[in-house]
């Protein structure tokens, strides 16, 4: 039987888009839907029955001191990591970009060095950090002691631990963001800098505000989204260095989700945390694209 031309084209469309769509439904949308349903139950792994408990899991997350601690810690972590990971990456990228014109070798070597934390396994790196930050024999405190400065307990001081983890998070993402910024800088047409110079932007910072910053707009948006999503799902350093401690002072959303789901087998509660995390991610991404896209692509 010969199919009509449109029917054949439809069949081709289906054949091309179908498998991927099925995989997306089976592997992403369906699990999300199941997790969403589970988040309204008190289901535990291995249990034979469950009860519908409505919004109780969500209420626990936002009212229970431990749940709230995880939420606020994550927000502090993100608030510290985003500006520093982006700002430092931009400064490093600008430096290396300018250095490349005169000393290309040195610039390339430094670029590789900054990128190293991205390529390295974070769990292995966390062990290195643990040794560096050891309260008595770690290199950091030895150096501070040598200089006559106080030697804090980086990973066991309740007020300090989340900032220590944030610093490691910054260290880890600066290299990646730097590479993105370097690509953005390389794409700026040199004519624009020359036009700015002719137009009277003689100082470096004038050229930065007239050309570099506006032209980096799309890159900055992309880096912001990447950094934010990375920061929100901080897990490895928490799991290897502090296990959320001391006294939940470094507990974060994803670590709480892991602990509740895979150590205490509270599948319902873990699902509720997952849903909160998921909604934050989607909202963040949508907001950033909606708000910023109009302003960075200059239409």
């Amino acid at each position: 039987m010969r199919l009509s031309r449109t029917a054949r084209e439809r069949a081709t469309d289906l054949w091309l888009a179908g498998p991927a769509t099925l995989a997306m439904i089976g592997l992403i949308f369906a699990p999300v839907a199941i997790v969403a349903v589970l988040s309204f139950t008190d289901y535990q792994f291995g249990a034979l029955t469950f009860r519908w408990i409505g919004w109780e899991n969500y209420a626990t997350l936002f009212t229970d001191p431990i749940g709230r601690k995880a939420v606020t810690n994550t927000l502090i972590y993100v608030a510290v990591v985003i500006p520093f990971a982006m700002g430092l990456a931009l400064v490093v990228a600008l430096g290396l970009h300018n250095l490349a014109a005169r000393f290309p070798r040195i610039s390339a070597t430094l670029r590789a060095a900054y990128f190293l934390p991205v390529a390295a396994t974070l769990v292995a790196m966390a062990l290195a950090w643990q040794m560096l930050l050891h309260p008595s024999i770690g290199l950091v405190n030895q150096t501070l002691g040598g200089l006559g400065l106080p030697a804090p307990d980086w990973l066991s001081d309740r007020g300090l631990v989340i900032y220590t983890l944030a610093a490691i998070g910054i260290w880890q993402s600066v290299g990646y963001n730097m590479v993105l910024f370097l690509a953005g800088l390389a794409a700026i047409p040199p004519d624009l800098y020359e036009a700015a110079e002719v137009d009277g932007a003689t100082k470096g910072w004038e050229r930065f505000w007239t050309v570099t910053w506006p032209m980096l707009g799309p890159t900055t948006l992309f880096v912001a989204v990447i950094t934010a999503t990375q920061a929100f799902r901080v897990f490895e350093t928490v799991a290897t260095l502090t296990r959320g401690g001391p006294a939940f002072a470094s507990d974060t959303l994803v670590y709480a989700l892991y602990r509740e789901g895979f150590e205490y087998f509270k599948a319902g509660y873990a699902s509720a945390i997952t849903m909160v995390f998921f909604v934050v991610m989607v909202a963040l991404t949508l907001a950033q694209f909606r708000v910023l896209e109009r302003r960075v692509h200059y239409r």
């Binding site: 047409p189 004519d191 624009l192 020359e194 036009a195 110079e197 002719v198 137009d199 009277g200 932007a201 003689t202 007239t210 050309v211 506006p214 032209m215 707009g217 200059y298």
Partner: peptide, 20 residues
């Protein structure tokens, strides 16, 4: 002297307009 000290005006082949 720099371009702005010379007070020259230049039109570029690519126009070099500020897109923002």
């Amino acid at each position: 002297a720099t371009a702005s000290e010379r007070n020259v005006a230049m039109v570029f082949q690519s126009y070099a307009l500020y897109p923002h």
